[in-house]
Design a protein around this nucleic acid. Sequence first.
DNA 1: CGCCATGTAAGTATCTTGGTTACGCTGCTA
DNA 2: TAGCAGCGTAACCAAGATACTTACATGGCG
Lengths: 144, 144
Amino acid sequence: MKSSSKFVVAVHVLTGLAVVRLKKKADSISSQNIAWSVNTNPVVIRRLLGTLKRAGLVETESGSGGGARIGRSPEKITLAEVYKAVEEGSVFHYHYATPNQDCPVGANIQDALHEPLSQAEAVMIEDLSRTTIKDVAQKIMNQM
Amino acid sequence: MKSSSKFVVAVHVLTGLAVVRLKKKADSISSQNIAWSVNTNPVVIRRLLGTLKRAGLVETESGSGGGARIGRSPEKITLAEVYKAVEEGSVFHYHYATPNQDCPVGANIQDALHEPLSQAEAVMIEDLSRTTIKDVAQKIMNQM
DNA sequence: CGCCATGTAAGTATCTTGGTTACGCTGCTA
DNA sequence: TAGCAGCGTAACCAAGATACTTACATGGCG
């Protein structure tokens, strides 16, 4: 089972921005700086920031001295929101090739599974909404 | 977000075997026959059946006239069990490269996320346990 | 104007997944 | 006992996804 690490990285980034904000250390952080923490390339971070920006979770500024800043109070951003912002598609993946429609099972299986599977996924996201970026940032700061 | 379709295919296969059993149509089904319904190659099915067999969810027989049969009453197999049998690893994927340990956030983020994320996943699997193969088979048979 | 930063496009390497071929073994049946 | 039908696995291949990288246009500040 393989999916993307975008969600975890997004939480990492937002948590970093939250820590900076809570500690009043700096106004904005460059993608270079964030990339250093995540251990990746600044372009990867900028792409991700673009997605988060469209979701209203961060603000960015171009130009010299620019960078990213958290878009809202950390306690008002839940992991569920981050998940929905960056992760597209369902946790569950249906058949590559359409199942055989001449078989009663093949013809109806996807439809029959839709409800229980989307329900299970919804429950998971619901659970993610119980944790906020502030919660995560707090945990980190306790270790510092 | 990309993962495998193994889970859905496994449910498809088990549902097919359940329908056959509930309708008392045949004793066992060949991988060829199953592959026809799933619209894939028999080898893919045999591989999957191997996994399901190890989990006790199906029984197989070699030789002429052999094939697969559901290993237990359909109402005693939940989607959660199928999920755990075929899907390895977590829904959430952590950083490709280890985050920068010189950064307080990078050094602690994975640890801080472990609990909320594994919790969310557990809740999802818990929800899957509310649906059985019989439930799915029943839905299919209502369409026949 | 020069510098530092974002935004984005385009190309590449690596990994995962599923499809496919091949072949040995098992067990039925004529 | 020969032949056939089926499973079990290994090995290879094609396609797709993911993230890394280079490159460059744009924006804003001194």
